[in-house]
Design a protein around this nucleic acid. Structure first.
Length: 618
RNA sequence: GGGGCUGUAGCUCAGCCGGAUAGAGCGACGGUUUCCUAAACCGUAGGUCGUGGGUUCGAGUCCCGCCAGCCCCGCCA
């Protein structure tokens, strides 16, 4: 639909210039050319697009909006290119111009997508391996802690955004900025020296669960005991200065956590390059030196700070960003600054990125605003580069508060995934028993795992990321409504048609786009023919894919893709319910099979971009 | 005190560049199965878009005030 929208926009602009040359010239001179305000039709009965520009022109032109719309309409009807694309437009309401694409144009577009592994989605302008990379910084758990539900959103949203950008052909660098440096390590190492020294020089001397417990104890001591606090801070300074004993202990702790993280990433099918805070340690001094040279640094109460413009702390004092603590240690702001500096720096001294995206919780909005401001003032952000924080809200329990276990602990990510899969398995077994279906154990496990993980991911991705979202197994695993099982079921229904003899053209393309070398065309007629309203509704929904992907990329909102896939599934289920495919007359059957094929491909592609796998049967 | 986010149906949430009568899903109520997986489909009821102003031909959407909730604000990340 993007192509059509662009063509129509151009045609409408031309029509406006022809109909109202004086006003158009004046508008161009003023730097604000007349805008036809082309938008998708707000309701299906209005056609495919609507142009709202006539209403805005009424006042300057001192004419009735419908009269203006009529003048535009006359110009459009004189335009052969427009006539080839659209049926005669309608003037409606106060002065809307409703545009409907010609059926044969829509059918040809569907035809084209059947042979297109990208399903009509173009590559981005800045695509290809030569282009400067886009960095997506996401997940970022802390070493010596387990991943919990708080990491879920960053991990899943970041992965989905990375997948969309990659599909558009952008070179993406997925970075896991793990918390492997800083005060927490001072605390932990200091505590371990006293209670479990073996953990500091022998691999796997204690298991991760114990480590987490030690971490908790260390944190308690740090908060309560001033002497401990002091010792821990000294330990951090030693580590950051490269003390070999500290470094070895640190390395062992990291390895242990890393193995745990990797299991979860594998389970969630997430690819990520670890580049933790420690990576930037060698650049911290240079950050401070740069800031000093730029004249931004101020020493306040012994700490080196940059005072932020337009932000103030309590009591109305200017708000500082501390880059070097009074004890000489660096903190997370320094590390984040070093990361930005490195990421935008030209290779080989840096990543040479043109766009850096941080997927972290909304609570860090102030922090990033401050860090970004300092980075800009330091001159580290090249002209035209994008640097943005992609915030998301909290995961809450049914009570509207931060999600906790019954005993009040944070929910471990592993436990959460296990429970989702277990619930799916129980539900599936109950269903099999009810329907007296016989399936082997492998089938049950495969379906339960796929549906369970899909449900968790989809529930998270399907709400607008900025709002807090209420976590509920019951809702996400519900088989009806805007849930993963509903979408997966639509794919399964199409697979069922194929099993029962419907030729969907070539092998299964599901795995995605790569496998599409196989020539699918054979099964489908030269010109697709549709007659039923359910068919046209499906055609129109299918053709929206490119528009939706462009929107997700622009707004960085995966929920837009979820809404689309849900609507597509609804439209398909209506079609499936009301229009026979296999039992249709040969001509209609072939065209309907083509719709089924494109629907399956679209759903699989879209779900794939969300990091969700599909099934043939469930 | 300063800043950020949120407030839309009983519940959970969408709502794009300001456009026509504010949309889904769940739940409630009522229907549909000799037919491609009913994990589906169809229908009914349900709204002062927190609130008061403003801008506009037109405001859930933009601006200002207020109310409520959550989050952040000097050496944790």
């Amino acid at each position: 639909m993007l192509r059509f929208a662009q063509a129509l926009d151009t045609q409408l602009r031309t029509a406006m210039e022809r109909a109202f040359p004086a006003a158009a010239a004046e508008a161009i001179a003023a730097g604000r050319p007349l805008d036809p305000k082309l938008a998708p039709a707000s309701k299906p009965e209005f056609g495919d697009f609507q142009a709202n520009g006539a209403l805005a022109l009424a006042k300057p032109l001192k004419q009735a909006p419908r009269q203006i719309a009529a003048a535009l309409l006359a110009e459009l009807e004189a335009d052969a290119a427009f006539g080839a694309l659209c049926l005669p437009p309608q003037i409606a309401g106060p002065g809307f111009l409703n545009l409907t694409l010609r059926p044969e144009v829509l059918a040809a577009e569907v035809q084209g997508r059947l042979g297109d592994p990208r399903l009509g989605v173009p590559l981005a302008a800045a695509s290809g391996s030569g282009a400067a990379p886009v960095i997506v910084d996401f997940s970022s758990p802390n070493i010596a802690k387990e991943m919990h539900v708080g990491h879920l959103r960053s991990t899943i949203i970041g992965d989905a955004l990375a997948r969309v950008l990659e599909f558009r052909g952008q070179p993406v660098l997925r970075l896991n900025h793990v918390g492997d440096w800083g005060t927490q390590f001072g605390m932990l190492i200091t505590h371990l020296k006293q209670v479990a020294p073996a953990a500091l020089d022998t691999a796997d001397a204690v298991d991760l669960g114990d480590l987490v417990a030690f971490y908790r104890q260390a944190k308690q001591r740090f908060d309560a005991d001033e002497d401990f606090q002091h010792t821990a801070r000294q330990e951090v300074v030693r580590l950051q200065a490269g003390d070999p004993v500290s470094l070895k202990a640190w390395g062992l702790l990291c390895d242990q956590s890393r193995r745990e993280f990797e299991q979860l990433y594998e389970r969630l099918d997430i690819r990520l390059n670890e580049r933790g805070e420690s990576f930037y340690n060698p650049y911290l001094e240079a950050v401070v030196a740069d800031l000093e040279a730029a004249g931004l640094l101020v020493v306040d109460a012994g700490a080196k700070c940059v005072f932020l413009e337009g932000m103030q702390g309590k009591d109305g004092n200017p708000l500082p960003l501390i880059v070097q603590k009074s004890d000489g240690g660096f903190n997370y702001a320094t590390t984040d600054l070093a990361a930005i500096r490195y990421r935008f720096a030209a290779p080989p001294a840096g990543d040479g990125a043109r766009w850096v995206i941080y997927v972290t919780d909304a609570g860090q909005a102030n922090h990033f605003a401050g860090v970004f401001q300092v980075a800009r003032r330091a001159g580290w952000i090249p002209a035209g580069a994008r640097l943005e924080h992609v915030p998301f809200g909290l995961v809450q329990g049914d009570d509207g508060k931060k999600l906790k276990t019954r005993s009040g602990d944070t929910v471990r990510l592993k436990d959460l995934l296990d429970e989702a899969v277990e619930r799916c398995e129980a539900d599936l077994r109950r269903r099999l028993a009810e329907e007296e279906r016989q399936e082997d154990e492998e089938f049950v496990q495969q379906v339960a795992t796929t549906v369970g993980l899909a449900a968790v991911k989809y529930a998270d991705l399907s709400t607008n990321r900025i709002t807090n979202y209420q976590f509920s197994f019951d809702r996400m695993l519900a088989l009806q409504g805007n849930t993963a099982p509903y979408l997966l079921y639509a794919v399964v229904r199409i697979a069922g048609i194929a099993r029962k003899g419907g030729d969907l053209g070539g092998g299964d393309r599901a795995g995605g786009a790569e496998a599409a070398g196989a020539e699918p065309q054979a099964a489908f007629p030269e010109a697709l023919q549709f007659s039923e309203p359910q068919e046209w509704a499906l055609v129109r929904e299918l053709l929206k894919l490119d528009t939706v992907i462009a929107e997700v990329e622009q707004e960085l909102l995966p929920n837009r893709l979820c809404s689309y896939l849900f609507e597509l599934s609804q439209v398909f289920n209506r079609f499936y319910d009301q229009v026979p495919v296999l039992k249709a007359e040969p001509a209609a059957r072939a065209s309907r099979l083509a719709l089924c094929r494109l629907t399956a491909d679209t759903l699989k592609l879209g779900l794939g971009l969300l990091g969700i796998a599909t099934l043939e049967r469930m």
